[in-house]
Simulated scan of single mutants.
Amino acid sequence: MAFKIGDVVRLKSGSPLMTVVGISGSSRISCKWFVNNANPEQCEFPSQALSLYAGPLPQEEAQQEALA
């Protein structure tokens, strides 16, 4: 799968939602995410370990609940 900067992804084995912030070659994807809504973390993963997140983002879920 070809990822692009700004995609929301997660590890296939489970992880917090992460944002793609860099791509090295065709197989190394740099991701950033937040721990406890405060501390940013960043790491590089093989593209084969990631899947594109297709569900609603947390802020979208909160907006939908507020409208219900």
Rank of each mutant, 00 (worst) to 15 (best):
L67D: 05
E41G: 00
L67T: 10
A66S: 07
S24Y: 13
Y53P: 01
A38I: 13
D7Y: 02
E60W: 06
V21K: 06
W33N: 01
L57T: 00
R10Q: 15
D7N: 13
S15R: 03
P58D: 02
S27C: 04
T19L: 04
E61C: 10
A62S: 04
A38W: 12
R10V: 14
L52A: 09
A2N: 12
F3L: 13
N39Q: 10
Q42N: 14
N39C: 04
D7F: 02
V20K: 07
M18Q: 13
N36T: 06
Q64P: 01
P58H: 09
S30K: 10
N39W: 04
N36Q: 10
A38V: 14
M1F: 10
E65W: 15
P46K: 07
P56W: 15
V9Y: 06
P40M: 10
G14Y: 02
F45A: 03
P46Q: 02
P58R: 08
E44L: 06
W33A: 03
P56M: 12
R28T: 11
L52V: 08
V8K: 05
F34T: 04
C43S: 15
G25H: 00
N36L: 08
E61M: 11
Q63R: 15
K12Q: 13
S15M: 05
S51G: 03
L52H: 05
A68F: 11
E65G: 01
A49M: 07
A38D: 14
S51L: 12
P46Y: 06
L52P: 00
R28L: 13
S24K: 12
A62M: 09
L52C: 04
K32D: 14
R28V: 12
S27A: 07
K4N: 04
S13F: 01
M1I: 11
Q59A: 08
A38H: 15
A66K: 13
Q48W: 11
W33K: 00
G55L: 03
L67H: 12
R28D: 06
C43P: 00
P56K: 15
N36I: 02
I29G: 07
Q48H: 14
D7I: 07
A62R: 08
